[in-house]
Computed example of a mutant assay.
Amino acid sequence: MLSPSVATRLLGQVRAPADPLSARELEVLHLIAEGATNREAAARLFISEATVKSHVLHIYTKLGVNDRAAAVAVAFRRGLLTLDDG
């Protein structure tokens, strides 16, 4: 028997890809890939740090990852980021 959190994580890996990233989430992801902190991303996008954190958590969920490096790696693998983006 699996705990609900483990079952949800496993199902997330089996299901079709989650919703595509929104335009703002892609902007945040680009800044993450550049190495920007939440504070720096917030300043560049003219939004609060809390909003950046919310976008980062949505990115993690949609990409099925739990850290910034993994999010960037998955984004490159899926073609959401390219070397020409910078």
Rank of each mutant, 00 (worst) to 15 (best):
A42V: 07
V56K: 11
P20H: 05
I32A: 02
L31S: 00
L57V: 08
E49T: 09
F46Y: 06
F46H: 12
P20K: 13
P17G: 11
K62P: 05
R44S: 06
E40G: 00
R78F: 02
V28T: 10
A36N: 05
S54Y: 07
V74Q: 13
V72Y: 00
L80S: 01
V65Q: 04
A50N: 04
A75W: 04
E27L: 13
D85V: 06
A23C: 10
A43G: 06
R15D: 15
A71C: 10
E34L: 13
P4G: 03
D67E: 11
V14Y: 03
V74S: 09
N38A: 11
A18C: 13
R24A: 13
A23M: 15
V6W: 03
A69G: 10
L10C: 08
Q13W: 11
A33K: 01
V6E: 14
A43L: 05
R68A: 13
L10S: 03
T8M: 09
R44W: 04
T8S: 12
I32C: 04
L80R: 02
A41K: 01
P4D: 12
T82E: 10
T82L: 08
L10D: 00
A7P: 00
F76N: 00
E34D: 14
G86H: 10
E27R: 11
T82K: 10
L80G: 00
R44M: 10
R77H: 13
A43W: 04
A50R: 14
A73V: 03
V65C: 02
V6Y: 07
G12P: 04
I59G: 01
A71Q: 01
S5C: 11
A71E: 02
V6R: 10
H58Q: 15
E27Y: 03
A16W: 10
V74R: 08
S48D: 07
R9F: 12
V14Q: 10
D67N: 14
A69T: 11
A71R: 03
A18P: 06
L26S: 08
H30L: 15
V14G: 03
S54H: 05
R24S: 06
R15K: 15
V52Y: 05
Y60A: 00
A36L: 09
L45V: 02
L2V: 07
Y60T: 04
A23T: 15
T37E: 05
E40F: 00
A23N: 13
V14E: 13
E27F: 03
A7H: 08
I59D: 01
A71M: 06
E27C: 02
L26A: 08
T8R: 12
R39E: 14
A50W: 02
G64I: 06
R15L: 15
T61I: 05
L21K: 02
K62N: 00
E49M: 00
L29V: 05
A70C: 03
A42E: 04
S5W: 09
N66S: 13
E49C: 03
A73K: 11
T82S: 12
H30V: 03
K53W: 07
G79A: 04
H30I: 05
G64Q: 02
A16D: 15
L11I: 13
